[in-house]
Deep mutational scan, measured.
Amino acid sequence: IRVTEDENDEPIEIPSEDDGTVLLSTVTAQFPGACGLRYRNPVSQCMRGVRLVEGILHAPDAGWGNLVYVVN
């Protein structure tokens, strides 16, 4: 998935696990201090948080898609 520190920055590609999840530790390896991800909902244009359970980030209902995710 494509992740950036700010919406206007160049994104970095972060690998997902075989089950489609992303480990928070993978994100923090590239973005120290990150505690989660958010993205701009293409329909509402509002920022939406990615579900985080026990250090594992779960894809939105429509999958990770071609969105750019921003670190929290």
Rank of each mutant, 00 (worst) to 15 (best):
I1F: 04
I1W: 00
I1Y: 00
R2A: 06
R2C: 04
R2P: 07
V3E: 01
V3D: 00
T4E: 04
T4P: 00
T4V: 13
T4M: 08
T4D: 00
T4Q: 08
E5M: 11
E5R: 08
E5D: 09
E5Y: 05
D6N: 14
D6R: 09
D6E: 13
D6F: 15
N8K: 11
N8M: 10
N8T: 12
N8S: 11
D9R: 13
D9H: 10
E10T: 10
E10A: 09
E10K: 09
E10C: 13
P11N: 03
I12V: 14
I12E: 03
I12L: 12
I12R: 12
I12A: 06
E13C: 08
E13G: 07
E13L: 13
E13Y: 13
I14Y: 04
I14D: 02
P15T: 13
P15F: 06
P15S: 10
P15Q: 12
S16H: 09
S16V: 12
S16I: 15
S16M: 13
E17F: 01
E17A: 08
E17Y: 04
E17L: 10
D18C: 11
G20L: 05
G20E: 05
T21C: 07
T21F: 03
T21P: 02
T21N: 12
T21Y: 07
T21R: 06
V22C: 06
V22G: 01
L23G: 06
L23E: 08
L23V: 05
L24M: 07
L24I: 04
L24C: 03
L24S: 01
S25C: 07
S25N: 08
S25P: 02
T26Y: 09
T26S: 14
T26F: 06
T26W: 07
T26C: 07
V27Q: 00
V27E: 00
T28A: 15
T28D: 14
A29C: 08
A29E: 13
A29I: 01
A29R: 15
Q30L: 12
Q30S: 12
Q30N: 14
F31Y: 07
F31P: 01
F31D: 04
P32T: 06
P32I: 07
G33P: 04
A34I: 03
A34C: 11
C35D: 07
C35A: 12
C35L: 13
C35M: 15
C35V: 14
C35I: 14
G36I: 02
G36S: 06
G36Q: 02
G36E: 01
L37Q: 00
L37V: 02
L37A: 00
L37W: 05
R38M: 12
R38P: 03
R38F: 14
R38K: 14
R38Y: 13
Y39R: 02
Y39S: 03
R40D: 05
R40E: 08
N41G: 07
N41A: 11
P42R: 09
P42Y: 02
P42H: 13
P42V: 06
P42Q: 08
V43T: 15
V43L: 12
V43D: 08
S44K: 09
S44V: 05
S44W: 05
S44Y: 05
Q45M: 11
Q45F: 08
Q45D: 06
Q45R: 12
C46A: 15
C46E: 15
C46Q: 15
M47P: 08
M47K: 03
M47A: 05
R48W: 09
R48F: 13
G49D: 15
G49M: 15
G49L: 13
V50I: 12
V50S: 00
R51D: 14
R51S: 11
R51F: 07
L52N: 10
L52H: 12
L52P: 08
V53Q: 14
V53K: 10
V53G: 05
V53L: 08
V53C: 12
E54P: 03
E54V: 00
E54F: 03
I56R: 15
I56G: 04
I56L: 09
L57C: 03
L57G: 02
H58R: 07
P60N: 01
P60W: 03
D61A: 12
D61S: 13
D61F: 12
A62Y: 15
A62E: 14
G63Y: 02
W64Q: 02
W64H: 02
G65N: 04
G65I: 03
G65C: 07
N66I: 04
N66K: 09
N66L: 01
N66P: 06
L67P: 03
L67N: 14
L67H: 12
L67Y: 12
L67M: 13
V68W: 03
V68R: 07
V68C: 08
Y69H: 06
Y69C: 02
Y69A: 02
Y69K: 04
Y69D: 02
V70Y: 15
V70N: 06
V70S: 08
V70F: 11
V70M: 14
V71R: 03
V71N: 04
N72C: 14
N72M: 13
